Simulated assay, not measured.
Amino acid sequence: MNYNSKIRETARRLLIERQVDTVLGFKKGTLPMRCQPVLITTPEEVDTLHWDSFCWVNLANYLPKLQGRIAIVAKGCDARNIVVHILENQIRRDQVFILGIPCKGMVDGRKIVKALNGKEPLDVLEDGDRILAKGSDFEQSFAKAEVLQDNCAICVHRNPVIYDELMGDAVPEQEHIDRHADVRELEAMSADERWEYFEGLVAPCIRCYACRDACPLCYCPTCFVDESRPQWL
């Protein structure tokens, strides 16, 4: 579903009417399957706003760092994050204007790269429930459901739980989803197997702190990964 026209139209109106000072959204990246956060402050800039199934970054983390009234593009998971920011007094409800995005899931670019088996995509397009990867000498199509991010595949809150304007019709929520299959697998392991599992999980860690930067509620004065006592990592 293409929300670009509605997002741009709404952002332009909000800026012209001075209902907001800033629009926080996405623009298309320079590489396939990449979108990047962008701050828009003038009506002339709104045509750079973009939305597709690669806008997986959680924009809510930027809100506590911004001043003035902010319009933010938010899918279901982002909206839930915004609610927690409000409850934790990191932002005020009247500070944000939420452009709600009904979402059928974000695509995991790593799954596409793996499926292409070394072929380099020059462009990746979305057409309904299909994802089309194009290279210099190939085209390969994928069912979107097969390349969704794992957390999106089991999401039960596709529609924003809070918004000021919805950018499209609400999408059906997923029902009868088994969200805890991985938990049961872990519970079925012996203590030694669990230890081995978690050792493997943290083995690639080089303390780059990407996990800290990706935290959906990053506002603690001191992050636990920065503490030396106890030594977490």
Rank of each mutant, 00 (worst) to 15 (best):
F224R: 13
Y219N: 02
E165N: 04
R80P: 04
Q67L: 09
N89F: 10
L132C: 06
L66E: 02
V113D: 02
H176Y: 10
Q149L: 15
Y197L: 09
S141Y: 10
P32E: 07
R69P: 04
V156I: 14
Q90W: 01
S136R: 15
M1A: 11
K111V: 08
Q140A: 03
L59H: 06
Q174G: 09
V225T: 15
A153I: 09
F26W: 07
E193Y: 12
D129Y: 06
N159K: 08
P121W: 00
F97Y: 09
F142Y: 09
P32H: 04
D21H: 06
V156W: 10
K6R: 11
G109W: 07
S190Q: 09
C103L: 03
M1N: 07
K104W: 10
C218P: 08
L233I: 14
D192L: 13
H157V: 13
H157P: 03
E44A: 14
I16E: 13
C211M: 12
K134W: 03
G135K: 01
A115G: 00
L148T: 01
N89L: 10
I98L: 06
A60Y: 01
E185D: 15
F54N: 03
Y163L: 04
A145C: 10
G135W: 07
E187P: 05
L217R: 00
I98K: 01
W56V: 08
E187M: 14
M106Q: 07
E126L: 04
M106N: 04
T41C: 05
E9G: 02
A210C: 12
L217W: 04
N89R: 13
C211H: 11
